[in-house]
Design a protein around this nucleic acid. Structure first.
Lengths: 213, 213
DNA sequence: TCAAGGTTTGACCATTTGGTCAAGGGAACC
DNA sequence: GGTTCCCTTGACCAAATGGTCAAACCTTGA
């Protein structure tokens, strides 16, 4: 009758459970990030995971449960780069380091970025609470930090909220719109990320560096 | 047996045809832009259009035909703002005007932006040819214009391709990630677009204005 | 007013989809 | 070696889905 209710949301117990839940989540990430929740099927995920459909449902009680597991996992790591932006650092460098971390994530975890993008574009049905909760709180906190930096003269004046939005959008673009970027640049592998890094560094550095007084 | 083959892709003939095809395309834009192609159903579209499902299929031969009609229409207008960027204008102002036009489109046509985003995130199955054709050509052309401006000293040096990517991503963000933006800013209506406009103007102006020599 | 062609729909169909279940196959611990 | 619990699957089901069709209903122009 499937895995014990107790184990839901916890670490798997046996080796086989560990291996298979990981395979399922990995396969589901492939599929969900490409087709969105409603456009993905259990058969696709099962096939990608190398399991039968009933076997999938032995490990997860339903399609939404798999999706929720992925989203939960994602939301835990998604905000880390922003959390690491510390008020006691050098302002311009702190923000630029954040930009780099985000760009790095777009390169290393494009599927996660697209999973998130799919969720948001489709109205964020499953994570609206987290957006208006954790995320909003964190952004407000960091916006205050940025405003502090501006007040101290270490940063050129900008709207901190829209600054954060522009950091998110420019970096995630390389994951979410990957096929478009590649269709235009025709890069070899990830070669274009070096240029993107240089460009974004220039963009935000010029914007944020306060005029020499 | 449905509308004459001749009329496919052409303007509707009768008043009723015009009214209904428009209602269908508008409803389909609502649905496709929210759920993506595979996540949308004919029943949803029919209901949103106020028609029966067989009636839908009287005007369009299939689900993909509706989607294709939308995408075709979209692609015709999508590149216009970039086309309008003229080599003989004042460089910084030309680019900033382009940014504003794109932001305006994100505000006026968020559904179209999300339709496009859905298509790209899911691997652009239906428009890859257009990306590698029209779009690529246009971008290369404008990249050359920008490089010319830089060479003339009227623009600070930047990678023109990544500049264009950053314009796309920052502006479309306000349409594609609308729920996230609203979840954080809690704006009244479109009030936040004024701030976005000011922010993006600052961002790109500081980056592009050549150092006074 | 009447015929011709345009429009609408209820009933229907094959396929896909999320999900169930009972029975059989293994691993592991005693 | 046997028992207990874990794992796997073929067969199945009800609902949803894209699409068809013949019959009925409207418009329109002569």
């Amino acid at each position: 009758m499937g895995i014990n209710r107790d184990t839901l949301g916890r670490k798997p117990r046996t080796r086989i459970q560990k291996k298979n839940t990981e395979a399922i989540l990995d396969a589901a990430l492939d599929v969900f990030s490409q087709y969105g929740f409603r456009g993905s099927t259990l058969d696709q995920i099962a096939k990608a995971a190398g399991l039968s459909k009933p076997n999938l449902l032995y490990y997860f009680p339903s399609k939404v449960a798999i999706h929720r597991a992925l989203i939960d996992e994602l939301m835990q790591n998604w905000l880390d780069p922003l959390r690491k932006m510390q008020a006691d650092g050098e302002p311009v460098e702190e923000i630029l380091a954040y930009v780099l971390r985000k760009l790095e994530m777009a390169r290393e975890f494009p599927r996660e970025s697209r999973l998130f993008a799919n969720e948001i574009v489709q109205g964020a049905p499953n994570i609206m609470d987290k957006i208006e909760g954790e995320l909003k709180t964190l952004v407000e906190e960091k916006a205050a930090v940025i405003n502090g930096w501006i007040a101290s003269g270490a940063l050129a004046p900008v709207d901190p909220y829209h600054l954060i939005f522009s950091i998110w959008s420019t970096t995630q673009h390389y994951a979410d719109f990957d096929v478009q970027v590649r269709g235009i640049l025709k890069p070899e592998g990830d070669a274009h990320f070096k240029d993107a890094e240089a460009y974004l560094d220039t963009l935000f550095r010029r914007m944020l560096t306060p005029p020499a007084s």
